[in-house]
Design a protein around this nucleic acid. Structure first.
Lengths: 180, 180
DNA sequence: ACCATCATGTAACTTGTTACATGATTAC
DNA sequence: GTAATCATGTAACAAGTTACATGATGGT
């Protein structure tokens, strides 16, 4: 009850085949939603069966045909309805949090090494996002609504990476204070 | 491949029955991990079958017996091994992000109302967490390692709520600029 | 010849969600 | 007597993960 809607958003922006959607999910929308091609194909098939999307088979030169999906009138209504429903409180799951909490029951030094790695990963991702912001949204004032929404979601990605980095840093500092 | 470990952490802090675990997950650990009692009972049964925990049936007055779970030597080793393994990059899912991104395809005014509600919810939760910090950790210097870990996870909860509030606020401000 | 890419899928499995069931005790 | 709490579960289903399959084209 959610991947469907994420796919409808993506297909509203631009119709796409399963594989194209998969790739688009690895970027932009993928800051906050991840899905494998297997999942996407399965859900697309269901959406087609339910009449939420129409499919056009597009022949290509030197490549297999692709099935391009476009939201139908029904699909557009489903999406609009969903957008207007109240949001459930998000329930985040973080393995990292569980590990921080359980540090006493294992090798704390190993955990600290892994934390440094995790922080480096997030720093890298943050740098990528910030570069995307500079390149794609050099001047965020006066953007068209749809483009502004994309910018604001990217802003969320940036904020989320900063959250991770700051939190891990706080943990590492508290740890260093003890061992120094 | 994760709830098991979260349960092992909780049971290492203090042995518990299924229902007690469920309640503990609604608090503290629950900032970053949520599980229903059905899930917990199922996983506990598997952990018992695999010899990760031992179970003691405790009779109670005027109440049904309860089955108290304690990590076994095997369970403690499993937990220690897991704590030392590198963290996979966390993949967060946010329905809110999808809705922000898709705002153009629905009623933007309704979305804005829902966003205000969502922000109020997060503000409430932030207030709860901050009160917990004041009451349980009035002086965070010189805490014992295990207690400090609990404090730092609470800090993460606080930081996460602030992330939500700040992001939603940024979105609402960008929206107001346009409509004013 | 061999590997990577494009494009679509199937199958088996693990997790997570929702709804229901039982049976005792305490509070109003 | 009615509802809430304590405590443990079952069953059906939805969602997500992992591994494998197919068959063509293009590059080295």
């Amino acid at each position: 009850m959610a991947l469907e809607h994420a796919l409808l958003v993506a297909l509203s922006e631009r119709p796409a085949s399963g594989l194209e959607l998969t790739r688009r999910f690895e970027k932009s929308l993928g800051f906050f939603w991840h899905a494998t091609h297997q999942q996407i194909y399965r859900v697309l098939a269901r959406m087609e069966a339910d009449g939420w999307v129409t499919v056009e088979v597009v022949e290509q030169e030197g490549r297999p045909d692709k099935r391009v999906h476009t939201p139908s009138a029904t699909g557009r209504r489903v999406l609009a309805d969903w957008l207007a429903t109240p949001m459930p409180m998000e329930t985040f799951r973080s393995e990292l949090a569980v590990k921080l909490r359980g540090a006493s029951y294992g090798d704390r030094a190993a955990l600290v090494r892994n934390l440094r790695d995790a922080r480096a990963d997030h720093a890298l991702r943050l740098a990528t996002y910030e570069q995307m912001e500079r390149e794609q949204f050099p001047d965020p004032t006066g953007l068209e609504p749809g483009v502004r929404d994309r910018w604001l979601v990217l802003r969320g990605g940036i904020r989320l990476e900063r959250f991770w980095i700051d939190w891990i840093t706080e943990y590492l500092q508290a740890h260093e204070m003890e061992t120094s």
